[in-house]
């Protein structure tokens, strides 16, 4: 029996059971108010469970639940008991386990947060890219042999920020189909807007579904004002730093209208007009060589 007056009052140690009990009681009370009946039951079970654990803890260490120790019967059993009382050597040290699992879990948490976020930052510019076909007007707008400057929105959803300019020339029929030369106005050196070398026919400028159309009088080629790149009427580089010919657009004809489609890069063009041989490459950004030794610097193009 404990002494009636202990010097140190028996204060219960820290414990989580009261918190669980409190939560159980709250869930029980809430369950009495809101509809599914089993919430209250769940709360009651939780409260009872934690209450049991709590009371067990409180009564531990008092003689109320503890049977008095019985001395071992024979002297021979004592050393064995003493030996067994010592803890066996740990096979896996606890500190090391905690270290590894902290780092591991930390890594998992870091990964869970950053991988989706980084993917969100990096991947979308490479996914779902592509070009639409844009209607730039009836074939009658494009006289044979002359360049027409067409400024169109390459993505109607993005409107003005997707505006592009192309120099369009109808070359006459080729194998029964109309042949067009459609040259992009982004210089192949660093992307500056290229100018046509020659007078424009501003008096006959027109508009078609939001695209601006300006005919030219006669063009001797194209020039870039930024660093002096020069191109001929097929887009081949004739002078200056551009690393390849001007890019071109593919096109299609539907219901008598010209549709400008996907751009592609060109290393050079042999011949002129409808019978020209165009050396085509996948679309590459300005400044990248597409043929020759230096094209090995750019082996893979991102999805465009």
């Amino acid at each position: 029996m404990q002494q009636p007056h202990d010097e140190h009052p028996h204060v219960p140690g820290p414990s989580l059971w009261p918190i669980g009990f409190a939560i159980g009681v709250v869930v029980l009370l809430v369950g009495l108010i809101i509809s599914p009946w089993w919430i209250g039951g769940l709360g009651a079970i939780v409260a009872l469970g934690f209450a049991f654990l709590w009371v067990r803890d409180l009564t531990r260490g008092t003689e109320l639940t503890h049977a008095p120790e019985v001395a071992p019967e024979s002297a021979a059993a004592r050393p064995a008991a003493a030996h067994e009382a010592g803890s066996p050597p740990e096979r896996y040290p606890r500190a090391k386990f905690l270290e590894l699992s902290t780092l591991g879990l930390g890594g998992v948490i870091g990964g869970l947060v950053t991988v989706p976020a980084l993917g969100f930052m990096v991947l979308p510019p490479f996914l779902k890219q592509g070009f639409k076909d844009i209607d730039v007007g009836p074939l009658s707008e494009f006289p044979e042999g002359k360049f027409v400057i067409v400024t169109f929105a390459s993505d109607p959803a993005e409107a003005s920020v997707s505006r592009k300019t192309a120099f369009v020339r109808y070359n006459g029929p080729q194998n029964g189909q109309p042949s067009f030369t459609i040259i992009s106005n982004h210089c192949a050196h660093l992307g500056c807007p290229v100018q046509p070398n020659g007078p424009l026919d501003q008096a006959h400028a027109s508009e078609y579904k939001g695209s601006a159309i300006i005919p030219t009088v006669s063009i001797a080629g194209f020039g870039c004002p930024c660093h002096g790149g020069q191109y001929d009427t097929e887009g081949n580089r004739t002078a200056g730093p551009p690393v390849r010919a001007l890019d071109r657009y593919s096109f299609s004809i539907r219901n008598g209208n010209l549709f400008i489609g996907k751009p592609f890069s060109v290393s050079r063009v042999d011949g002129t007009g409808a019978t020209a041989t165009i050396h085509k490459w996948t679309f590459a950004y300005p400044g990248e060589h597409v043929s020759g030794l230096e094209s090995w610097l750019y082996p893979i193009q991102p999805p465009h």
Binding site: S160, R163, K164, T165, P193, P196, P225
Partner: peptide, 10 residues
Amino acid sequence: ADPGTTNFVP
């Protein structure tokens, strides 16, 4: 800004 310009020197 006009992405379709032919008339500007960056």
